[in-house]
Write a protein that binds this DNA or RNA. Sequence first.
RNA 1: GCGCCCGUAGCUCAGCUGGAUAGAGCAACGGCCUUCUAAGCCGUGGGCCAGAGGUUCGAAUCCUCUCGGGCGCGCCA
Length: 543
Amino acid sequence: MKFLIKPIIDKYLENKSYEYVNYSIDYPPEAVFGDYSTNLAMVLAKKIKQNPINIAQDFKAFCENSEFSNKFKIKIEKPGFINFFLTNETISKEFLTLYQKKETYFQFENMPKKKIQIEFVSANPTGPLHIGHGRGAAIGDSLARILNFLGYNVVREYYINDAGYQMYILGLSTFLRYKELLGQKIEFPQDAYQGEYIKDIARDLIKTYQDNLLSMDNAIDICLDKAKNTIMNDILHDMENFKVTFDVFFSESSLFQNNEVEHTIELLKSKGFTYEKDGALWLKTTQFNDDKDRVLIKQDGKYTYLSSDIAYHKNKFLKRGFDMVIDIWGSDHHGYVARLKAALEALGIDSQKLIVLLVQFVNLIQENNKISMSTRKATYIELKELIKEIGTDAARFIFVSKSINSHLDIDISLLKKKSMDNPVYYIQYAHARIMSILEKSNCNNELDESMIKLLQETEEINLIKSLLQFKEYLHDSAKTLEPYLITKSLLMISEKLHQFYNKHKVIGENKDLSCARVGLIKTVAFVLALGLSLIGIQAKNKM
RNA sequence: GCGCCCGUAGCUCAGCUGGAUAGAGCAACGGCCUUCUAAGCCGUGGGCCAGAGGUUCGAAUCCUCUCGGGCGCGCCA
């Protein structure tokens, strides 16, 4: 309920006609310091060269003479912290609002109309998804759910890199395995796809075509199509099991078919941002903050990957009119951000509308050694396997509960052994506990102000506070694009619920109190289910 | 060599627009089920916040350097 605190501080600053002051409102480290605290006095002290304690006292007096005086109490601490203690009345009132408004309590008052695209996973259809992709998938999907809930118009997109050399290699790899299985001698190149799944696809091809492909001119194309479709289906199947969906699958090759790549390059040319050198066409990205200029058309006349990517992002912004585009990439692509943004600027598109989230790699721990995931070195674990071992909920929770900047280490053998220790069960258990109590209770009265006033125990107040804080975490999560804040809040709510449960009975002799408590835990269950749904995890009724 | 991310408890991670004795989960140890789910609750131990300087009333947080790890630095995608 920071929004209860902020107005009074701003009013104070306005009253004193101080210019912009960069103060913060935080949760104090311990409950004895109150519900909220601000460093206002200490920040001001520097600015106006006064003792922070004096400023704090002045602020306190100002509050006590304002219409806010009954909402919270203020205490001043050592260096100059101003601590706010919400009164139980304030908390009850706020809780009643939450109870009545349900999800709209957590949404913005003015629903944003912004059109946001989130592009994520976008793994090349050249092999199965591994747990690195799983991290990007869980984060992208959760962000989409969160922003969608807050009222943004969100489109989830998967970009299929189905053009270019990699695809040719995929087709070739498949064709070679096909020949091999038919008893021919082949040389399998090192940069071909080594995985067993290629052989499976080749086997399917033999079922369909017998040995007829050997004499066909377009054999590699047929192999490529088959491989691409098979792998894409496998990826989709994994995503479905991981509860990740997409609205749009955008094909890179369609950009070539529609001449969008060509037109984009022409546009850049006409704007004068290109030049020819060494038989190639270059884009002057250095004019827009890049280290060096980049090639658009190679000596051999083919477009670079950057060219189609510029066309793709031009399509996002100019053709489809997204107000904001969030690309979720692996951190290995970070060097690519500057050139793409530069290209957008060259096209006259505000590059700030493009937000690239770089998700750090997932490292595997095997026998106490870190191994980075690589498809080539075959040091990866398929997402399928992780889901099979610990389930979608536990797997998603691991990915979503960490900041995207953290270098995540996963020891799969440890995970298997201790999968029941996953904190997701702590939350789901809290929900299941509530549902079990609700089955036994027969109170269906709606909460009103007088009933809420019965909830005065420390554990009840703490539980209510944690529910109200969910709003802050949710909004911070959307603002910072960090879904882990949701998990953090849900864990706190669950903790408060378990503490309450262990100390107090919901169903008891006092009918009114029982009903009030039923209303309370119903609301807890509602918020837990809402929060879990925002990270794509099931709320369980029984465990 | 240059750039990005990171180094916090035995393990996995929060805290990093500078603030109050550095947090959580797991692991370890000790308690709590004749009463709504013990996948829970209560308690204990555990840290030169990689290291060294600096700025500041105040640094895990900001600056510089060093060490260690991951990833980039293609007319690959």
